[in-house]
């Protein structure tokens, strides 16, 4: 089933840092063959359209590399603001916390596995970390 990458964003990112994150993460997914990416934004207090776009980009890029991205831990104020701004981050999976994010990833990858390869059905994923 492959393993997951967990990225925790600790500060409000400068634009260049955010762009670096995008590049680094895609590299890491390729290098490690990770099937899932968790981005923990619980410490991020502001997500503007730029940051939103980076998150969307990462999700789309990992998607075509056959890895799912889940954004976890979004602050209520950030969620309310994004909705008001008209940026619902369509296409990005979200979960309340890292634990629930992992659960979601396992489920997603499992469902994908079933669809792609029905032989794997009797081997439930247990290699997540």
């Amino acid at each position: 089933m492959g393993h997951f990458l967990l990225v925790t964003i600790q500060v409000d990112l400068y634009d260049r840092l955010a762009l670096n994150l995008e590049a680094d993460l895609v590299q890491m997914v390729s290098k490690t063959g990770a099937r899932g990416v968790l981005i923990d934004i619980s410490a991020v207090s502001i997500v503007d359209s730029f940051m939103g776009r980076i998150i969307g980009n990462i999700a789309n890029m990992t998607k075509i590399m056959d890895a799912e991205t889940v954004v976890v831990g979004m602050q209520p104020a950030v969620a309310i603001t994004l909705i008001e701004l008209g940026l619902p981050l369509t296409g990005v999976h979200t979960a309340l916390n890292v634990e629930k994010g992992m659960e979601l990833l396992r489920k997603k990858i499992l469902v994908d596995g079933e669809a792609d390869n029905s032989d794997d059905e009797d081997q439930p994923g247990d290699g997540a970390e």
Binding site: M74, A79, I83, E84, T94, L96
Partner: peptide, 12 residues
Amino acid sequence: IKTVSATRLMGA
């Protein structure tokens, strides 16, 4: 609808 969208955005 906004409230529902915001809830979903949080992952619930």
